[in-house]
Design a protein around this nucleic acid. Structure first.
Lengths: 249, 249
DNA sequence: CAGTGGTCTAGACCACGAG
DNA sequence: TCGTGGTCTAGACCACTGT
């Protein structure tokens, strides 16, 4: 009699806060205009048979994503959709789909090599340990957008080099290996393209570009991936919402 | 007997969560090593005569800043300090000081002009409304790092164009006008420098650069500032910690 | 002034990790 | 099994906004 209820819980989702957030995103996406008032916290708590604390957790998350803002004494309001969301960890595929573009890959190569000094240091493994090295040209609606080098410890993804997959690498990680990227440390630099990279991206030599270096971790802090990506800057920008740190020190 | 204690509360700060966070940052900065275990939530709650919920709010913030991480069933641990913190809203001055550099400005100009189409649209005012336009070359240890154009509605900062100030514009906003930037929407693009900008930054023409466009808001959602900044890319990178969005849609 | 969000209390049960 | 963090309940009072 731990979870009797009336029905077999069509989908025994995580928590009430999650369901509440999904309901609220539905409200925002469906019909509500920017600066419209959302229901009050107390109303939502009553409607969903829960407490204000739980409602606040859902609203906090949406606030962090920039979907709504709150003003003490006045209420909770829908944000302008000018900048969709704050910077978050997504796959290239999801990122492109979110922008309404069809993601793809060209010229994928997969090899198993020794990590070497740089990759080994970033992945916290020995330079002699083996890694799977994947290179791809990522495309959006068939247009080359990004050149990607990705390194993953062979010990973490055994046999990946002999697996065939289409689309998102993250989906393979999740389905085949039960690995879920949760966090990444990322460094973005501005640069210009050399002749080879420019040709691969079909833009003139010396065009501006983003160089993105990223180490991806799972929930337990294991290093899953070290990735170096080069984005053509004429088609890419980083849009984000940032907040003042309350610990102003 | 509401706050008896022993001393007159040197500074009657905001909330317990804030004091707790300050205590915890002290713990982390003072002696604790990466991956060391922090006290448990229940211990902290008892030590500080508060509840787990309050402790969790403090820990949540530090988690978001990448200072610590938590593993269910195991405990709370100090993060590796590899990347100091997530992207946050700071002034150029604070940013440079955090990197151990001495911030400064060169060739500051201040004028009062009509907003015009672009600036008016970004600040949500009429193109005919007046704005204060400030241009500066920002320096770190005397080296030019960034060219900055900043526009603020005259109605928000009356008389700013006749005020003399040194150092941080944000400090003037806070002290003279009681305005505190709380949030910003920021777009970062990669570009190359034209001859004039390159000369101002003492780098070769066509050097890579970041173009940063930013609208700053206060806690009540008022638009305070529209800023366009150009950073030399050889001296600047954006380092951040990003997380997977729990609402994976 | 009434109503809003901001903070906090004092418990409870669950899910997960490690011994 | 035990202790950890993750989630939730059912209240309370405060700070601020708008009327």
């Amino acid at each position: 009699m731990t979870t009797p209820d009336t029905a077999p819980e069509t989908a025994p989702r995580r928590g009430k806060a999650t369901r509440l957030r999904e309901y609220l995103t539905g409200l925002i996406d469906g019909g509500l205009q920017p600066h419209d008032r959302m229901p009050t916290e107390r109303e939502l708590a009553e409607q969903f048979q829960t407490t204000r604390l739980t409602v606040r957790r859902a609203l906090d998350q949406l606030g962090h994503e920039g979907r709504l803002y709150r003003t003490q004494g006045a209420g909770t309001f829908v944000s302008e959709p000018r900048i969709a969301k704050s910077l978050e960890l997504t796959s290239f595929s999801d990122d492109m789909r979110a922008r309404g573009l069809k993601p793809g890959s060209l010229g994928t190569t997969v090899e198993c090599i020794a990590a070497g000094a740089e990759v080994g240091a970033e992945l916290h493994i020995s330079p002699r340990d083996m890694v799977v090295h994947i290179t791809r040209t990522r495309t959006a609606d068939g247009v080359a957008m990004c050149l990607e080098h990705c390194y993953m410890p062979s010990a973490v993804v055994p046999g990946l080099e002999t697996t065939s997959w289409d689309g998102s690498l993250y989906e393979v990680l999740s389905r085949t290996y039960g690995l879920t990227p949760e966090k990444a440390e990322q460094s973005i630099r501005a640069s210009v393209l050399d002749a080879a990279d420019a040709a691969a991206l079909s833009v003139p030599e010396f065009s501006p570009a983003f160089r993105v270096q990223r180490v991806t971790f799972d929930a337990r802090g294991r290093r899953l991936e070290y990735a170096l990506s080069t984005y053509r800057a004429d088609r890419y920008s980083y849009d984000m919402v940032i907040y003042r740190n309350p610990g102003k020190s």
